[in-house]
Computed example of a mutant assay.
Amino acid sequence: MAELRLVELSASTIVAVNNLSLKPGQEQFLAPVSYGVAATVADPSTSWQRVVADGDEVVGFVSANFDDDASIDYFRSVLWRINVDADDQGRGVGRFAVQSLVEEARSRGLDHVNVIYEAGEDGPEAFFRRVGFTPVGETEYGEVIAQIRI
């Protein structure tokens, strides 16, 4: 694996992001990428979206929101989405994306980042625990709220 780097989401990278593949069973835990991209249009001042590149190849995508004025506390600093191409999972791409997000949150003076996910077999819980997130609650819809402290 070449050195991983973050690049801005752009017209030249969005097609590759939309074509990231998933392992069987993962699709039920992930809304289409276009939903996440729509969030930047809704409020680009609070949205943080980056593409993870390995050399010239797009291997992942990470989207977060930093909004001190969010009406729900766990939405003030939240990882919305992380996608890693099926062929690149298990190679450190996701860990790199989360570490980059944590550094961004730290640079903004924040002390944690939340993530919200649906529990279930083949779901993202094991990954989130491995990279340092700890469950801290549940949404009104039964989704897990986990947090990584900075």
Results as ranks from 00 to 15, higher is better:
Arg129Ile: 06
Val41Ala: 11
Val78Gln: 01
Ile148Leu: 13
Glu103Thr: 01
Gly60His: 08
Val41Gln: 13
Arg91Leu: 09
Trp48His: 13
Ala31Tyr: 12
Val93Asp: 11
Glu8Asp: 15
Thr134Trp: 07
Glu57Gly: 00
Ala105His: 04
Leu30Asp: 10
Ala42His: 12
Leu22Tyr: 15
Glu140Arg: 08
Ile82Trp: 09
Glu125Gly: 11
Arg81Asp: 15
Arg129Thr: 12
Glu118Cys: 01
Ala38Ser: 11
Val93Thr: 10
Phe29Ser: 03
Tyr141Lys: 05
Asn65Pro: 03
Ala119Gln: 10
Ala64Ile: 04
Phe128Gly: 02
Val144Ile: 15
Leu6Thr: 09
Val84Tyr: 04
Thr40Cys: 13
Gly109Thr: 11
Glu27Asp: 14
Lys23Gln: 11
Asp43Tyr: 12
Arg108Cys: 10
Arg106Ser: 13
Ala70Asn: 10
Ala39Ile: 03
Asp43Ile: 02
Glu57Asp: 02
Arg129Glu: 14
Val98Lys: 03
Leu79Phe: 14
Val52Thr: 01
Val52Lys: 01
Ser21Cys: 02
Val41Tyr: 15
Leu4Val: 02
Ala146Tyr: 00
His112Glu: 08
Glu143Arg: 11
Arg50His: 09
Ala97Ser: 15
Gln147Glu: 14
Asp111Trp: 05
Ile82Arg: 03
Gln26Glu: 12
Val41His: 13
Arg81Glu: 15
Leu30Ala: 07
Leu6Ala: 11
Phe29Leu: 03
Val84Trp: 08
Arg81Thr: 11
Arg91Ala: 09
Phe133Val: 03
Val136Asp: 05
Tyr74Arg: 00
Arg106His: 11
Val62Glu: 05
Glu27Lys: 07
Gln147Arg: 12
Asn19Ser: 06
Ile14Leu: 14
Glu140Gln: 09
Gln89Pro: 08
Gln147Trp: 09
Ala11Leu: 04
Ser63Arg: 09
Val115Arg: 12
Arg50Phe: 08
Arg95Gln: 13
Gln147Cys: 10
Arg108Trp: 12
Leu9His: 06
Ser21Phe: 00
Ala11Glu: 07
Val136Ile: 12
Gly36Val: 03
Ile14Trp: 14
Val59Ile: 06
Leu4Pro: 06
Gly55Tyr: 12
Leu101Val: 02
Pro124Met: 01
Val136Tyr: 04
Pro44Thr: 05
Phe61Asn: 00
Val37Ala: 10
Phe75Leu: 07
Ala53Phe: 08
Val102Pro: 00
Ser45Asp: 12
Thr40Asn: 12
Trp48Tyr: 15
Leu110Pro: 08
Phe127Met: 06
Tyr117Trp: 13
Gly137Val: 05
Glu3Val: 01
Val58Trp: 01
Phe127Gln: 05
Leu20Ile: 00
Ser107Ala: 14
Val37Asn: 10
Val41Leu: 13
Asp87Trp: 06
Leu20His: 03
Glu140Gly: 09
Arg106Asp: 15
Ile145Arg: 05
Leu30Phe: 14
Gly25Trp: 15
